[in-house]
């Protein structure tokens, strides 16, 4: 399995009330660096959009937005049953690799979720729903996402 299929540019974690609790860039951005307030705005807008989009569905209990595709990046999102939302900004795959790319991005998000459960929630001094400042989580993400 090609590890370079998905290159994660940024990760955002949103708590169940729409507040940004973690964000991190994994590559130096060439332009338009997002500052803290932009990141918080992005987090809450995506959270609201994600929640409201569920109501566009004609069927009840539908899954909602999974990804957003732009010309220069893809956004992949994982919303877990306990209410936390994770999303990553990734590269754009080659046209013939779109499906593997989406699957691989979903795996990455699942691994990020596992790291969150393991290194954030297991930390007895982490207050749930509050911004994440856990060195072990940072280290786990570095091992997982940086190259």
């Amino acid at each position: 399995m090609s590890a370079s299929l998905v290159s994660v540019l940024s990760l955002y974690v949103i708590n169940k009330s729409g507040g940004l609790i973690y964000n991190r860039d994994f590559v130096q951005r060439a332009a338009g660096r997002i500052d803290v307030s932009d990141a918080m705005r992005l987090g809450s807008i995506w959270f609201s959009l994600h929640a409201i989009a569920a109501q566009l569905s004609p069927t009840p209990n539908a899954k909602t937005l999974k990804s957003l595709h732009a010309d220069t990046f893809h956004l992949h999102c994982l919303h877990v049953p306990s209410g936390t939302t994770f999303f990553i900004i990734t590269n754009v795959p080659a046209p013939n690799q779109a499906q593997q790319h989406a699957q691989r991005a979903a795996d990455v998000l699942q691994a990020v979720y596992a790291a969150y459960a393991k290194y954030v929630l297991r930390n007895p001094f982490y207050e749930t729903e509050m911004p994440i400042r856990c060195e072990l989580f940072d280290a786990a993400l570095s091992a997982l996402l940086s190259r």
Partner: peptide, 15 residues
């Protein structure tokens, strides 16, 4: 199984 292989193995992480 794939999830397990994704488990981080940074030097700082506890065994």
């Amino acid at each position: 199984a794939r999830g397990a292989s994704n488990a981080p193995r940074g030097s700082q992480l506890p065994a």
